[in-house]
Amino acid sequence: MNDEVLAFGVGLLVVLDGGFAGYRARAGRFARIRRLGHDLRAVARGGFIGLFTFAIAVSLALALSGGALFDVSSREAAARILWVAGGYAVLVIAAFVPFLTGSPDLRSLTTVVVFGPLTLLRPALIIGACVYAAWGQSGRVMAAVAVGGALVLMQDAVLDRLARREPRL
């Protein structure tokens, strides 16, 4: 896997995670029945925060490495993150197929078996992915992964604060 694909993959995961976090932050806070536009705006806002988070993480990695995004150690760390978080993302996205096209029973089952538990697992998975990625790497990479992971986890809090201020209708 070349460096561009690796960087794009990790960036895409952070933006996706932000999008889902944006949706979650507004879910259960908006009273209307017709809410597609509202939900799409919430996802877009989360994705933007994710993009911002990724930009900070990349800037930090560049600053710590003196200009080169990847070396052997950081490349391995990024690949590990991609495998763990990518697997999680594929599972979540795949679950949307039955959720969006299935019968009410299948949709409920998807919610109960996939979305609910995976949402609960997400913080632990992010921490686990970061620990796995940083394991045995250089101090610089460990620091970048730790800060990056913390920023991703903080997205929820930021989006939650923003979502709380918005009207219920």
Binding site: A27, G28, G116, T119, D160
Partner: peptide, 9 residues
């Protein structure tokens, strides 16, 4: 319990 922990604030 699990679901409300995951979904409710």
């Amino acid at each position: 319990w699990l679901f409300h922990q995951a979904r409710m604030r």
